[in-house]
Nucleic acid binder design. Structure first.
Ligand SMILES: [Mn+2]
Ligand SMILES: [Mn+2]
Ligand SMILES: [Mn+2]
Ligand SMILES: [Mn+2]
Lengths: 155, 155
DNA sequence: GTAGAAAGTTAGCCTCTACTAACTTTTTGT
DNA sequence: ACAAAAAGTTAGTAGAGGCTAACTTTCTAC
């Protein structure tokens, strides 16, 4: 009934108090959903690259330990990454990045570092910075990343 | 085989090049997964509060339009929110927030605004700021939020 | 007051991401 | 060299979150 009173003068026309148009907001949410679909792949390839760098190879057991998930979860995710052309692998063997996977890993590593350095530069403790960066990194546009980098790198 | 050579001197002991212990990294990833589980509820209650404020009521058709999803997706999500005690509703009627839902909405709205103002203050254009804030907000700790607020509010 | 439009729900489908239990393969230690 | 341990896979379960198609309810205009 509150709606009926209101609808007398502002029902189908966009109200003045309607700060953002519906489709602009929808675009933001759609962008977030899109980013979420890439998160897993990004974290995996970044981690795989790290493991190869640190241990010479990326084994599912280590991937699982670092991500805090069980082995079958990793098996399934790796099948998806292989299907998407980011990794190659053979049964019971460790994982390799394709050129595309390596490129993505490099990009993600770079972005992760910028976000992390930015947060620390802002005054955050290193531990919390690492926790937050792991989530924030996937939702930072090119422009925002550039601003983060400038701030982190400033004298 | 690279691993075998390496394992001669660094196999089971944590290597010096192993920058972060596995469980610290796992903790970060677990935190992100936890945050992701709350994202949808946070966006819904924030949006519902906005709609009630702007239009006097929150109707599923408007929720769907603003989120950029189809009506049945909203029906299902609302069932979950009701199950979780964040909203109350009756069939074919609009949605109401519980006290708990209202409190969460207020918190989310506040956080969203701080992140948004922070990004704009950093030099980002308002449109991109809105897009990024919608994703970043869910991955910002209390500490980071406090730093964002200080930066946004500084003279 | 009623017919048609709009809104909402239900049913059924899909993918993704997680899990456990049970099995197979590989590696390790003696 | 071979038994036991560790690593990896497969199968099956579950819930979240998206969709379309078809149905029901509510609202609106006449
Ligand atoms: Mn991450
Ligand atoms: Mn990362
Ligand atoms: Mn959001
Ligand atoms: Mn928001």
């Amino acid at each position: 009934m509150a709606a009926m009173i209101k609808s007398d003068f502002s029902a189908e026309l966009p109200s003045v108090t309607d700060e953002r148009p519906a489709d602009a907001r929808a675009e933001a949410f759609q962008g977030v959903r899109e980013a979420r679909r890439n998160e897993l792949a990004e974290d995996y390839v970044e981690l795989i690259a790290d493991l190869i760098h640190e241990h010479g190879e990326a084994r599912p057991v280590d991937i699982a330990a670092q991500l805090g998930v069980r082995a079958p979860t990793v098996t399934k995710a790796l099948a998806r990454l292989a299907r998407e052309g980011l990794i190659t692998r053979a049964k019971y063997r460790s994982v390799f990045l394709t050129d595309e996977g390596r490129a993505l890993a490099k990009e993600c590593r770079n972005r992760h570092e910028i976000v992390l350095r930015f947060l620390i530069r802002l005054g955050l403790d290193a531990e919390t910075a690492e926790l937050d960066a792991e989530g924030i990194e996937h939702h930072v546009s090119e422009r925002t990343l550039a601003l983060f980098k400038s701030y982190a790198d400033r004298p």
